[in-house]
Structure formats: structure tokens, C-alpha cells
């Protein structure tokens, strides 16, 4: 089918669109990762890459295999469901090699992450104004952090 002479300029404009679309597809081919969309709206290879990264957290079961007494104390108190590393930080290296000693945590800073007074928390949740309550004295001076007393 021949294009009428007086409508050819319209086809030139249409060709511009086609060229732009082809350029878009070419760029897309190079910039979109090959595994994008394999499992969902993300890069599929990201899963294996993330899985290959070194472990930082050991998990509370591993902690409790050595620190049995602490594990028992935790089970008896209100911190039963708080994982060890939630307060002590990631300790996979220490769990693999006990000679690597973790840094002792500063309870004055760590405890108020959860227990600082905030109206957004339920009223029954124990919370304090750190300055008025202890004035900078470490929490474990009076409390037993592992069983939450």
C-alpha cells in the first residue's frame, strides 16, 4: 500500500515515535537486570547475593547453648521473647569463636530504647523518664535486665 503523498509527513512523525520506542527498548535491555521479575517486582539474583553475605546475628538458640543460666533467667521473666542480640547487638563472630569478646553494653543507653516514656506506647508497658528515674545511673545497678525485674 502506497502512502498518499500529502500524508507522508505524518508517517515521518510516526517513524520518530517508532525510533524513540526502539531506543527505549534497547536502553531497557541494557539497564534492566537480567533476573528482574524472575520471582516478583525485584531483581531475582538479589536473593542469592543477600544469602551469600556473611551472617551477623547468631540467633538466641545459639547463645543459650553456652549461656544456659541466662537463658533460664530470661524464660522466667518478662524479657522471655526479647532476643539476646536485640540488646547485645550482632554476635555471630563471638558465637563462632568465643575468644572474640563482645563489647559490654551500656544499659543507660540500651534499655531506654524500649522503656523511655512515650505517649504512643500502651499504658501498661513499663516506661520511665530516664533523667528523673535514674539520672544516668546504669539500669543494672537496681534491675536485673535478663529477667526484666
Amino acid at each position: 500500500m502506497s502512502i498518499p503523498k500529502d500524508a507522508r509527513h505524518l508517517f515521518r512523525f510516526a517513524i520518530l515515535f517508532v525510533i524513540a520506542f526502539v531506543v527505549f527498548l534497547v536502553i531497557r535491555h541494557f539497564v534492566v537486570p537480567k533476573t528482574f521479575g524472575e520471582y516478583g517486582h525485584y531483581r531475582g539474583a538479589a536473593i542469592t547475593e543477600i544469602a551469600a553475605r556473611p551472617m551477623h546475628f547468631a540467633g538466641h538458640q545459639k547463645c543459650e547453648t553456652c549461656h544456659v543460666d541466662i537463658g533460664e533467667a530470661k524464660k522466667a521473666g518478662k524479657h522471655e521473647n526479647v532476643s539476646c542480640e536485640a540488646c547485645h547487638g550482632p554476635l555471630a563472630q563471638h558465637a563462632d569463636d568465643p575468644s572474640i569478646q563482645p563489647t559490654k553494653i551500656n544499659t543507660t543507653e540500651v534499655c531506654i530504647r524500649c522503656h523511655a516514656d512515650s505517649a504512643a506506647k500502651p499504658g501498661v508497658f513499663p516506661q520511665i523518664d530516664p533523667v528523673q528515674h535514674s539520672g544516668g545511673v546504669p539500669c543494672e545497678t537496681c534491675h536485673q535486665p535478663h529477667n526484666g525485674l
Binding site: K5, D6, A7, R8, H9, L10, R12, L16
Partner: peptide
């Protein structure tokens, strides 16, 4: 901007207006 077409005959302009 002409895209290489300088056809501005009355018929081509009429097509432009319809499009």
C-alpha cells in the same frame, strides 16, 4: 522540525487539521 517534509499543499494541511 519539518522532519524533512516541506509539503504544505492545501490537501496536506487539510489532512493535518483532520488529524
Amino acid at each position: 522540525m519539518t522532519l524533512g517534509s516541506d509539503n504544505i499543499s492545501p490537501r496536506s494541511l487539510a489532512i493535518d487539521h483532520k488529524v
